Simulated scan of single mutants.
Amino acid sequence: MEKIAFLGLGNMGAPMAHRLLAAGHPLTVWNRTPAKADALVADGAVLAATPAAAVRDADVVITMLADPQAALDVADAMIPALRPGVHWIDTSTVGPETVREVAARLPEGVPLIDAPVMGSTDRAATGELLILAGGDTAPVAEILGRLGTVTACGGPGTGAALKLVLINAMIGGVALVSETLRLAKSMGLPESLARESLAQGPLSGAVSRAYAKDALYAVSLAAKDVALATSALPGLPILTAVHETLTSRPDLATKDLSAIREHG
């Protein structure tokens, strides 16, 4: 079994790491807040004090980090300790530009697979994520298979690019559902009638996500993902408006995306 280093134990990273540990992989973990590793350590994982210490003996490195700056900071800390032949899988949502920047810093013989995921904490726990992979996944296919289903997107950076496309479609859909429900309420329509009618049309997936109860995809992370898209292509008026919606209520920043429907 490959030795795995897992860096980033937030709401998504922790359940993903638990699945790999349960499968029998020797697992070393690191997180900026060490206490978040307590449950994994109790189950047999080894806690490293630094990113470099975490990856030094690893065969495979997996990162799940919050944003581009966190990804770059961790990359700077761990790259000097990466051995030739180690495979790095980055499941963070950071956009193709950051993927290219990180890849350019890697030493010879250390391939990077950008493999951001679709799905929230519930699917992370059950191994049902949709993994959008850019690069050669063959050497790590078994490990990725423990986390979900892989969609091969092409060369490095293509997984990161497709993630921005899909996640922004979802976020924009939830924002649209939330706004149309407010419109329905203003005209005296029962929410249940509006919800059921919207769910029968092309927004059905966005309706179910707007009412999700077992997921945790923070509004602040959704805002970050929309910002990545609008930075990649300025002049997207709908997504720009969605970003304004997501950032207009700081009190909702740590709540799930469905909060924009509940509190909008």
Rank of each mutant, 00 (worst) to 15 (best):
G205D: 02
I113E: 03
I4C: 04
D122A: 15
P34S: 07
G127T: 14
A104Y: 06
H263W: 09
L9R: 01
A133C: 12
G145T: 08
V99M: 13
P107V: 05
L198N: 08
L252H: 14
G154L: 00
M16A: 02
L239Q: 10
N31Y: 08
V140L: 12
N11L: 14
R146M: 12
P51F: 04
I238F: 15
V61A: 12
I171T: 07
A223E: 09
L203T: 08
G235D: 09
N168G: 07
L193H: 11
V110F: 02
D225N: 10
V226W: 14
G172H: 03
R146E: 14
E97F: 04
D73W: 02
G10H: 05
G148F: 00
G8T: 13
G145C: 06
L21F: 06
P139Y: 06
N31T: 07
T93P: 12
I89F: 05
V140F: 10
R182N: 10
V60E: 06
G173S: 07
V29F: 04
D114L: 12
S120N: 05
I143A: 07
D59C: 02
K224G: 12
A45Q: 04
L198P: 08
L162M: 14
G159N: 08
S231A: 13
D76W: 15
P139R: 11
L20Y: 00
P26R: 00
L198G: 08
R182V: 06
P250I: 01
V219T: 14
V165P: 06
S258H: 00
M187F: 14
I4Y: 10
L132I: 10
L183S: 04
G157E: 03
D114F: 13
A104W: 15
I131N: 06
G264P: 09
G119Y: 06
Y217G: 14
L257Y: 11
V94C: 11
A152E: 15
V94T: 15
L65P: 08
Q200P: 02
L106R: 04
I260A: 01
P116E: 12
K185F: 00
K36L: 05
M64C: 13
I171P: 00
V41S: 04
S220G: 10
G148T: 01
A45N: 04
D90F: 09
G134Y: 11
P15A: 01
T230R: 13
L164V: 07
I171G: 03
A81D: 02
G235K: 01
E108W: 03
G145E: 07
P202F: 08
K255G: 11
L162S: 03
A39D: 04
P51K: 13
V60G: 03
